[in-house]
Amino acid sequence: MVLPATWIDHVPVARGISSVVILLVGTFFAVISARLVERWCVARYDARRARILRRVFHYSAMVLVILIALDELGVGVGVLLGAAGILSLGIGFASQTALSNIISGLFLLGEHSFSMGDFIQVGSLTGEVLAIDLLSVKLRTYDNLYVRVPNETLIKGEITNLTRLPIRRVDLSIGVAYDSDLGAVRDVLLDLARQSSLCLEEPAPTVVFSKFGSSTLDLLFSVWIRRQNYSLAMNELASGVIREFKKRGIDLPYPQQMIHFVATDPRRTEKDLPGTRSGPGPGS
């Protein structure tokens, strides 16, 4: 049986060998140069950007090496690129979500909104960033759950980076009784902040009247703390407020409803009670 001749039968052995050599040497240089690019980026940017740039550089270099090797073999690269274009169009339609995630990942990379080890809040999720990849970001939540968030979700939504800045404000909403002396309440709260080792002196703590509530005068007590002390400060301030208010007789009232009972003549009917309309209406 005679096998049909293929293009490979017409390739001289020498060109085959040189093509393999191009492939091997090219791969070697692609790996080395990608590592150099990563090292250069680490020195200037951060590990995350460096890793992604290394990958991008490595894959681009490998594509170039493969094209040169194929060209050496005598394969028509132009035809191949045309076919690859049509193929990539098909793949593009089929993998829109993946591509969207990759492009979103590149935008996130450029924005540098967060980095590995930061604590971020995305929608209802809060957690530590474990990895930032081309398609998704991996988070570990406070209750130790591993969550994968697609880059597209991150780019579309709101991200709060909880660890970007070293200090943050803690707000406590406090309602005191209507007969309280607001000046005295303010002094107590500011003293509490001054005595706490967790509260920063600058920016200074503030007490601001916020509204006349249904049962209380509502105040907003704000102090600045180091971000690591958030939970500690919330607990310390809450217990401090209760302790100091109790000591100084400042009431923290429960929600209350005041009902006025009006003594009425039992012989009067419901329609005679104040506030009820009796007799014919104005239009009659």
Partner: peptide, 16 residues
């Protein structure tokens, strides 16, 4: 014991 403060032109830039 010391209390702490923030030293900087705003709450974005500065040092503890």
């Amino acid at each position: 014991r010391f209390s702490e403060t923030w030293f900087g032109p705003d709450t974005l830039n500065g040092d503890l």
